[in-house]
Design a binder for these strands. Structure first.
Lengths: 335, 335
DNA sequence: TGCTAATTGTTTGAGCGTTACCATGGATAA
DNA sequence: TTATCCATGGTAACGCTCAAACAATTAGCA
């Protein structure tokens, strides 16, 4: 790596002259500026990032901690975050917590040594289950800003980006009811998560409001460590009269559709299905799955915007929670 | 952030005493060491990463540039890279080239200012198509090591991690032939890529060797920007006698299976299908897709190992290419 | 017992690559 | 002669480490 010192030596001027010349300082003569800039270009000089960071106490780097890159939602969020961060001149240090509290803690801990200016994170499942958030509040106390997205924690005071989970599944359930469905089952792989609970509540709420409706709500918990397919098969066995399915996670909707078709259900004539999936699964289904679309790109973009905003005016104490709209997109698996 | 200086002031010793004490230096008395370490722990002292990097000229950070996080293969590779890097005490700065040469160039350029110790990358499609590799050789000339994986370039001299693409599809084709298939079609979304070409050649080679075999090889190019499903439908229209399909990309195998079932093909009685997919798609298929397994975790791990090896002994000039074994895993879509 | 030599524990100082502020010296104007 | 301007140089600091210097104690020896 070429340094200011080397440029200075070659040009027989001082280091500070070179530094000023590269910044087009008024103090330096046109002639010197040109000589310096030419040599800098020629030798492909780049200011050393570490020296800059040390001096300015800013890294222009954001820490991103997501539970799982293999989950399409988080991969897409990461993609959006990366795009927006790059656009704004920031780099990303990415960590995967793998849904583990311990990994989340150590990532946060390790990166809070001046490696990043702030964090964007979605909370690991274990962390939510144990409701153990001290590692996050510790970071906030050190005055390092954190933006939480999707899986957030009520009692942490920081900026957040969420979707209206409750409202989204409420609307979806309402839609199934309006189709005249009489036996609507909710399928969930994510009962432990904040978003899972909210989505379930939306479904339940829609039922409560329908007083003349006889069927009690049925919530099927799929354990994603076990066999998702077996659980879905079981769903059809124990609920042969099912005529509506709301899947509140990424995959079970697709699996349910496949199993239903295999069982001989006509979709959407006999059975409507709505998933919480992204468009990526559509290529794998026929008819195309109707879904609640989360606008993941918007979510990712918003997290970066909030974090950089916060970095630029660190003093403000009020925190904002941004709710990204969802859309119920009706395709081939609803009437 | 607490600094050595602050600790030194509180303890009435010099900065270097504190530094040495924290490193358990022999020079420092047991008593001082203890006092220093206690205070450091109490104030949660962490050495400033930027200062360390500036001093040592090592960042303990690796740059990862992948074409697309939404592709399951790359997401999984990233996951593996992250795990191994973390294990070895390295952080990751992740960039997504989005298959664009320009983005790949700027990422490489921006991170070569001392932000990372080395790069792990898989080449963008545009870069491969234009065969424009100068940005990579430039980095290598600056003595920043690069490890390429999966999508590599022959003429770049650096460490590489690949799979035996040729051999894998050769074996798969051989298997289909051994089943007695008479009309085997290759489906590819990735004709432009190095790996796509190798896999296609493996298929062609298997045909060449089968002299008593009448059918000419048929290669169907699916343009992934257009409708994959339409292309597959078309495949069945124009080749009604097809009884074997080898898909050499991530998704077209699954789509082919769905369309075949819909068309009324009995799988695997009438038609065998082998995909290049990862296990993640299995939940979406019934019968389960037979696949060539790429051992993506091993690939990711190997890239990190090679890069860190290289960082630890920078002088060596010989470069290694590591080939990760593949497995043909026969499941429900082959006899 | 007194003096030097070795040992121990600590401080000083330089340097990694930058930038920001202050100093300097030469030319020109008042 | 002194004030003013212009172009450049010098220095300190960011937080850290490492070599070298330095006191203060202890050992070695006549």
């Amino acid at each position: 790596m070429v340094t200011l010192k080397q440029l200075a030596e070659q040009l027989n001027v001082s280091v500070s002259t070179v530094s000023k010349a590269l910044h087009n300082s008024e103090e330096i003569s046109k002639d010197t500026i040109q000589r310096v800039q030419e040599l800098a270009k020629h030798l492909d000089y780049q200011p050393n990032r570490m020296a800059l960071s040390l001096k300015s106490n800013k890294t222009k780097t954001l820490g991103v901690i997501i539970p799982n890159v293999l989950n399409h939602f988080f991969a897409k969020a990461l993609y959006a975050i990366e795009m927006e961060a790059t656009k704004q001149g920031y780099n990303l240090i990415t960590c995967v917590s793998n849904e583990l509290l311990s990994k989340e803690m150590s990532s946060l801990q390790l990166l809070s040594n001046g490696s990043v200016d702030g964090f964007i994170m979605s909370i690991a499942e274990e962390t939510q289950v144990k409701n153990s958030m001290d590692h996050i509040t510790t970071i906030l106390k050190k005055d390092i800003p954190v933006v939480l997205f999707d899986r957030v924690a009520e009692d942490i005071e920081c900026d957040k980006v969420i979707i209206d989970d409750f409202g989204a599944s409420y609307e979806a359930t309402k839609h199934l009811l309006s189709e005249g469905r009489k036996y609507i089952v909710l399928v969930s792989e994510i009962e432990e998560l904040s978003v899972g609970k909210l989505r379930t509540n939306g479904y339940l709420k829609a039922f409560e409001e329908n007083i003349d409706y006889k069927q009690p709500p049925i919530v099927i918990h799929v354990n994603k460590d076990n066999d998702v397919e077996a659980s879905i098969k079981n769903l059809f066995m124990s609920n042969p009269k099912v005529d509506g399915i709301l899947s509140i996670d990424n995959t079970s909707g697709v699996v349910a559709l496949h199993k239903a078709l295999k069982k001989g259900f006509k979709v959407p004539e006999d059975l409507s299905i709505i998933g919480f999936s992204d468009e990526n699964v559509l290529v794998f289904t026929d008819p195309k799955l109707s879904t609640i679309s989360q606008h993941t790109m918007d979510i990712g973009k918003a997290t970066v915007e909030l974090l950089i905003d916060r970095l630029n005016k660190k003093n403000t104490t009020t925190h904002v929670t941004k709710t990204i709209k969802t859309n119920l997109i009706l395709r081939g698996t609803t009437k």
